[in-house]
Computed example of a mutant assay.
Amino acid sequence: MKMLHQPIDQSRIVEDGFDALVELDTAINEVLAHKPDLKGHKFGMHGENVIRDALQTICNMQARAYGCLFDEGSRGPTESKANKDARLERVRKVKAALGNEDLPNLRDRGIRNALAHYDEYYLNELRSKPKNFELKWLGVSSKGMFTRAEDDVKTIYVGVYFYAEDEFHLFNRMIKLIPMQTELRGVVTKAGYVIKEEATAPGDTAPPGSASS
Rank of each mutant, 00 (worst) to 15 (best):
R90V: 02
N124I: 11
N100M: 10
M61N: 13
K81N: 12
E48L: 12
E30G: 01
K129E: 06
F70G: 00
P77N: 11
W137D: 04
N113M: 05
A63C: 09
N100L: 07
P36Q: 00
D71Y: 02
N124L: 15
E120C: 05
L115P: 03
L98K: 06
R107F: 08
P36D: 01
Y66T: 04
A54T: 11
D85W: 01
Y66E: 07
N132S: 13
W137L: 02
A65R: 05
A33I: 06
L138R: 02
R109N: 10
K131V: 09
Y122R: 15
V94N: 04
F70I: 01
V31R: 02
E101R: 09
G40I: 11
A27W: 12
G44F: 03
L98H: 08
Y66D: 02
L115C: 00
K84L: 07
L106C: 08
P36W: 06
L135M: 11
L115Q: 12
N124R: 15
I58G: 03
R109E: 10
V91M: 11
S74L: 05
K35F: 09
I58H: 00
V31Q: 00
S128G: 11
Y66F: 15
A20C: 03
I51Q: 10
V91N: 11
L126H: 07
S128K: 15
